[in-house]
Design a protein around this nucleic acid. Sequence first.
DNA 1: CCAAAAATGGAGTGTCAACTACAAAACTGG
DNA 2: CCAGTTTTGTAGTTGACACTCCATTTTTGG
Lengths: 209, 209
Amino acid sequence: MTKTAGRDHGARTFTVKGQATRTRIVKSASRLIAEQGMERATLEEIQGEAGVSASQLYHYFADKSALILAVVEDQTDVVLGSHRALLQNLDSFQALHEWRDMIVDSLEAQHCVGGCPLGSLTGTLAESNPLARQALKNSFTEWERLLRTGLNAMRERGQLRKDTDTEGLAVSLLAAVQGGLLLSQTRRDSSAVRIALDSSIAYLYTLRP
Amino acid sequence: MTKTAGRDHGARTFTVKGQATRTRIVKSASRLIAEQGMERATLEEIQGEAGVSASQLYHYFADKSALILAVVEDQTDVVLGSHRALLQNLDSFQALHEWRDMIVDSLEAQHCVGGCPLGSLTGTLAESNPLARQALKNSFTEWERLLRTGLNAMRERGQLRKDTDTEGLAVSLLAAVQGGLLLSQTRRDSSAVRIALDSSIAYLYTLRP
DNA sequence: CCAAAAATGGAGTGTCAACTACAAAACTGG
DNA sequence: CCAGTTTTGTAGTTGACACTCCATTTTTGG
């Protein structure tokens, strides 16, 4: 008979209070990692930020890399959530510009610190945490799918030529977002991502029927 | 009278042998960091890779962050060096395609591991090491300048319209490189960066006179 | 060739962060 | 209301890793 309390991290059963605590930990970890990088975001600091003790942290996560995985999932939900709203009814170039503004505005809201949460996590985790890399790969694939779906809708509505390669364009747009955010993060200036997106959109204009 | 041997890391004087050792350390550090990320690349491991002792490492570098700064400089030289050759005589769209191939080929040569050394370093250091961020910012600025100069040359040669915004395009191209490499690194598949660059170049084609 | 400086060897130390042990408190469900 | 379970507190332990000390060897420059 196994004592199932404490560190059974297989398929856990949490109370509402427990879920709240778990969420608080993940959100705190996400915030600290985005704001000051993985190295400086120690578990102790995360505990302080979340207002929990070490035992609580290990009650909800097997180890640090499990927490990191939860952070990747959380940031994926946050980022893709904000994009989904705008990309699901991508019916015009106007909507595309609004999408660009959302990206630029949200970067400026954090004063260009952190860049894209998913992009930054990739930089730190891609070569050190295979599970996280896989999760990030899936996140980017889904993001790309959102873009492709939106572009397909525009194409169906006759705003892009029928032979438009929406698959390739989705990758290009995502690359422009990521590259632009990386440059803007480095420079603490949102102009890079704005310019990169404007170029990508300008290219789309040339693909009108 | 100060004993200037050992850990005087202000303005050092090295013998050729010393320089060689220092270089060996930096190269080993660059390699390990690129291949397995900052966290897993401990100083001990770097010592092993370079075949030096701890005292040697601290003979040449004040501390780890000084070594990291040297790594940023080293990778900047390596990356920009390979681009300079191709961008300095950017005289045609053909040359632009060769530039794209160089990027794709060099990523494939390392099996898509590490992505862009500078981009990955940014992901890990931007929010934890202000000096490194500044150095990376300068590196990207110089990279952008190389691109702009190349595009200017193309414009002068009449391959781009006279009113072409080479400044913005340079940023866009750099973003496409960085974003594409990030996605390719995550997927271990070079197609993303190839597609991103092809789109950017396709846009340039629309800017011919 | 010989001092002075530079380069290296080897064996540490201190700190910090991830992780644990164990028990008490607070819930939950019947 | 009570047994079982989940949640939390306190006080550790451990190991790794950045960094140091000092002696010794090698090199340099005059």
